[in-house]
Design a protein around this nucleic acid. Sequence first.
DNA 1: AGAATGATCCTCT
DNA 2: GAGGATCATTCTC
Length: 212
Amino acid sequence: MLNLAMPQNSYPRPLPRRFFSQNALEVTRRLIGKTLVRFLDDDILMGKIVEAEAYIGENDPACHAFRGLTPRTRVMYGPPGFSYVYFTYGMYFMLNAVCEREGFPAAVLIRAVEPLEGLDKMMELRKIEDPLKLANGPGKLCVAFDIKSELNAIDLTSKVSNLQLCAGKDVAHVKWTSRVGIREGSDKKWRCFIPGNKFVSPGKIKLRPRKS
DNA sequence: AGAATGATCCTCT
DNA sequence: GAGGATCATTCTC
């Protein structure tokens, strides 16, 4: 559907690759306030990033690259600015942006966005109405933005990609806490979010007891 | 409010 | 086979 309120030449521009080549914590901090843009056949969806987490290198036990280079983690070892989309819990996709230099595996998990544009389509995809709950978690966000494995390893900095990370309004104040839903590595305060923002995820995931 | 459970399947061991 | 960067629903207190 043609959106007359926002003509094409006023879409935010994709962030440059050098943005993602910085260290992962810097990228995480600076992604807060930026815009996630998704182009569908008949809709354009946008959201303001309000929460993100860093996963950094082979020594971070919560990072998928902790177990080294595998077919799945290959994209994390590639150049910055690409998507790392993976499937988990038998049900959900997670969206990451690869960062740091090529050869060093690191990525930023986009955990929550505040919906800005295309709310009707997000409601249809999510099958709920409440704007506060459309994308306030990494799994929900991927449903709301129709992000699946076919969007893995795509260039988020290209203006022809149908998933982009774009300019936004800088956020003055953020808070850092432990990452959500992980078993090890919770000593590191690598989760960044806008304190008080209503679109941030609940941040409480119950880990199932491990058999052993 | 907090705990338990089902959904559901890809990736790595 | 096991476990997982989750979520919604259903319980129990």
